[in-house]
Design a binder for these strands. Structure first.
Lengths: 251, 251
DNA sequence: ATAGCTTTGTGTCAATTTTACACTATCCAA
DNA sequence: TTGGATAGTGTAAAATTGACACAAAGCTAT
C-alpha cells in the first residue's frame, strides 16, 4: 500500500531506469534471472533481457532497484550493490527494443540512462515456475548467455566483474547459498565467481582460518556418496573480523 | 568546433548530470579540484562543489565526463573512471543549490540523477590561478574538506573508496605524479590513498620487484638534503605484467 | 553382503611473501 | 665544518601460499 501510494503520487521519470542483474547459484554454476520478452521481440533480436524499469521521481536509486527486485521475485532485504550507470545515446537500436519499451510505458525515442545493480539471491528462495509473478522470468546459466537486449550483455559483464572484485573484499558469496551449505558447495561457488580452479585443500584451509563459519553437527542427507558436514555463515564472527580492519577475503 | 556543433545540435538533458572528482597530489597529500560557487551561495550553505554539468542528449556518459574535465581544466586524455550514480530525490534541498542550478541552466525543481567519475591528474599539469578557464576552481587538500554542496561530500567519500580499491588492482597512482618522480613521493602517495602508514623499506622492495619502474640515471635537484634518484613509470613492462594475468598491486 | 562408485576430508613440505626493525650516505645550508 | 634532512639499504622470523595423494563414508547395484 505504501507501494501504491508511491505510484499514485509520483511520476515515472522517462530518462532514468534501473536494471537488476540477479545472480543465483544452482550449486554447480552461476545463473542470472532473465526476462523473456516473448515471441514478438524474438523476430527482431534477443528475447532475453535483464529485469528493469523506469524509476519514479520520488524514489532513490537503491529503492528503485529494490522495488524492481521485489516486483519480480517478491524478495526484499536482499544484498544489492550498484554496478554503475550506462547510457550510450544509441543504446536502443532495435525495433524490438522500442516495442518492449512501449510495453513498460517508456518513451521509445527518449534517451534513457540506466543504473545497474547486481544482487545475490539464494536460488531456492525463488522458483519462477511456482511464482504468481512474471511467469516469463527464469534462471539462465551464465555461460549460456550469448546476447541480451539493449546493452544488457555489457551490463552483465560489468556486474560479473564487480562481483569478482567485491568478493575479494567482502564474503558476500554466502548470499547465494542456502542457509546450510557444504564446504564443497562454497568451493564451487568461489570457482564459479572467480572463474578459475581453486585447490580444494588450500581453499578449505583458508576459508576455515577466517573463522567466519559455524560448523553444524549435521550432515547432508540423501546424497549418493559420503555426506558432507553442513556449515553456516557466522555473521557475528564476521563483524568481529571486519572491526579489526581486515578486508582480505581473496583467493 | 566539434565542440560547438555538439552544443548546437543537441539538447541538455535536464535529468542527468555528470560530476567529476578530480584528484591531485601535491607531493604531500591528496587534493581535489573544487569549484567555488561564490559569495551568494555561501550565505545558504557550502560554497564548494564538485565540477559537474548536465549531459547533452547525444553524448554518452564517459564523453560527458571528459567534456566537463576538459571545459574546466583544458585537460583531456586523462585517466577517468566511473564511481557510480547518485540520485536521492531530495538531494537538492538548499536555496543556494537552486541558485547554483539556475546558473548552469538546470531546472531547480527537476529530479537530477548524477553520475560521478573520478580522475587523476598531475597537479603540475593544471594550475587554476594561471588558467584562463574557471578562475573559481582550486585544489583543496582532501582532509580539509568537511562539507560540500548537494550530496557531493558523499560522492567524494565514494570516490576515495573506489580509488583505494582500484589502486590495489591497477597501478593508476602514477597518473597523479609528474613524469619523473622519486620513490619517496610514490610512497607518500600510496600512504595518502590507502590512508595508512606503509613501511618504507617494504614498500620500496615490493614496488621495485613489480619491475614496472624505469630507474633514470638522474637525480633530484635543489632539495636541501640527499637528492633522490628519479624514476619513470614503464608502460611496456606494465603491459607485459598484466598480460600474465597479474592483478595484485596491493599494499 | 559385497563390490564399486562417488565425493569428503585431511597433512606436509618447500617456496614465497610479509613484517619488523636501524644505521650509513649524501647533499644543502649555515 | 658541522648540523639537519632525507635517501637508501639487509636480514631474520613468521606467516602464507602452492603443490600434491590417499583413506573414510555413504549410496547403489548385484
Amino acid at each position: 500500500m505504501q507501494h501504491n501510494l508511491k505510484k499514485i503520487n509520483s511520476e515515472l521519470n522517462p530518462n532514468v531506469s534501473v536494471d537488476c542483474v540477479i545472480f543465483g547459484f544452482d550449486l554447480e554454476q552461476l545463473t542470472v534471472l532473465l526476462i523473456d520478452r516473448g515471441e514478438i521481440s524474438s523476430a527482431f533480436g534477443p528475447r532475453l533481457a535483464l529485469p528493469g524499469n523506469l524509476i519514479y521521481d520520488n524514489e532513490n536509486l537503491d529503492m528503485a532497484a529494490n522495488r524492481v527486485l521485489d516486483e519480480l521475485t517478491g524478495l526484499n532485504n536482499i544484498y544489492l550493490e550498484q554496478v554503475g550507470a550506462f547510457g550510450d545515446p544509441d543504446r536502443i537500436h532495435k525495433e524490438s527494443d522500442r516495442e518492449w519499451l512501449k510495453s513498460i510505458r517508456a518513451e521509445p525515442e527518449a534517451r534513457v540512462i540506466t543504473v545497474a545493480y547486481f544482487t545475490l539471491v539464494p536460488m531456492s528462495d525463488y522458483k519462477p515456475q511456482a511464482s504468481s509473478f512474471a511467469k516469463n522470468a527464469d534462471w539462465v546459466p551464465l555461460n549460456e548467455i550469448k546476447e541480451l537486449a539493449f546493452d544488457h550483455f555489457e551490463i552483465l559483464q560489468s556486474a560479473k566483474e564487480k562481483l569478482k572484485q567485491k568478493i575479494k573484499i567482502q564474503p558476500i558469496g554466502f548470499n547465494l547459498l542456502p542457509e546450510k551449505f557444504t564446504l564443497s558447495q562454497l568451493h564451487r561457488l568461489y570457482e564459479s565467481i572467480l572463474d578459475k580452479p581453486l585447490d580444494k585443500r588450500n581453499f578449505r584451509r583458508k576459508i576455515q582460518k577466517l573463522d567466519i563459519l559455524t560448523s553444524l553437527r549435521e550432515k547432508q542427507r540423501g546424497v549418493p556418496h559420503k555426506p558432507s558436514l553442513l556449515y553456516q555463515f557466522n555473521e557475528e564472527k564476521y563483524q568481529e573480523l571486519t572491526q579489526t580492519g581486515f578486508d582480505n577475503f581473496g583467493f
